[in-house]
Simulated scan of single mutants.
Amino acid sequence: MADYPLTKFHFQVEWGEGGNTDEPDLRFTEVSGLDKEIEMIEYRDGFNPEYSKVKMPGMVKYSNVTLKRGMFKGLGSFGDWYKTIVMNKVERRTVTIKLLNEEHQPVVTWQLNNAWPVKIQSTDLKGDGNEVAIETMELAHEGLTTEFL
């Protein structure tokens, strides 16, 4: 059996405790921003005879994650979660993104810890277009873990 790279078009998104949510189905057309970066610290000790800085790892920085999906009549809205945000209070959720194989089993899982919406974007409207209406939600989070199954 030959080994092939994973395809990226078959995935699933869950949010809430154990994937529980008030929406019956969370289907997305795109998920982006699943990255993390270690900030670099440059330091030079005054007693160092070298005229160069030492580079050390610093804090981990996470990008916001963007979720896109088609708009459906009667299928809740990203806005429902967004409306829960008030000054100094936010409903934080665990968001799990699973890349699935041909048997619909997860092969890679990304988990966002303490995620909450920071931006909601509705679709653009065009009188001469025929595209599907897409809504977008951007999530901030406090940690990203990746697990290869």
Rank of each mutant, 00 (worst) to 15 (best):
E50Y: 13
A133H: 04
G79H: 13
G18D: 09
E142I: 06
M137V: 14
I120Y: 14
D22Y: 08
S63N: 12
G76W: 08
E30Q: 14
E42A: 09
K53R: 10
E23N: 07
G127W: 01
F28A: 00
G70H: 08
L67N: 03
K53N: 07
F78Q: 00
V54W: 10
T146Y: 05
K53W: 00
E23K: 11
W81C: 00
R69Y: 03
N101A: 01
E102N: 09
D124M: 13
T109Q: 02
F148H: 15
K68L: 04
K89S: 13
F148I: 15
Q111S: 11
F78E: 00
M40E: 13
K89E: 05
P117I: 06
T145I: 13
G74R: 09
K73C: 12
N64V: 02
E147K: 15
P106H: 01
G79N: 13
K61P: 09
L34S: 00
V60A: 14
N114C: 01
T123E: 14
E17H: 06
E42F: 07
V90C: 12
P57Q: 04
Q111Y: 03
R92F: 06
L75T: 10
L112A: 02
D124F: 09
P57D: 00
F11Y: 10
E142Y: 08
P24E: 04
G46P: 11
D3C: 06
R44D: 11
E142S: 05
V95P: 09
R44I: 06
R27A: 15
H104L: 08
G129S: 15
K55D: 00
R69M: 01
I97K: 00
D45S: 12
P106V: 00
K89F: 14
K98S: 15
S77E: 02
F78M: 00
R92I: 08
I97F: 07
E30M: 09
D3W: 09
T123A: 15
R44F: 05
H141P: 12
S52H: 04
V132T: 11
L125C: 09
I38A: 10
A115Y: 03
K89L: 07
K36R: 09
S52E: 06
V65R: 11
I97G: 02
E37L: 00
A133D: 00
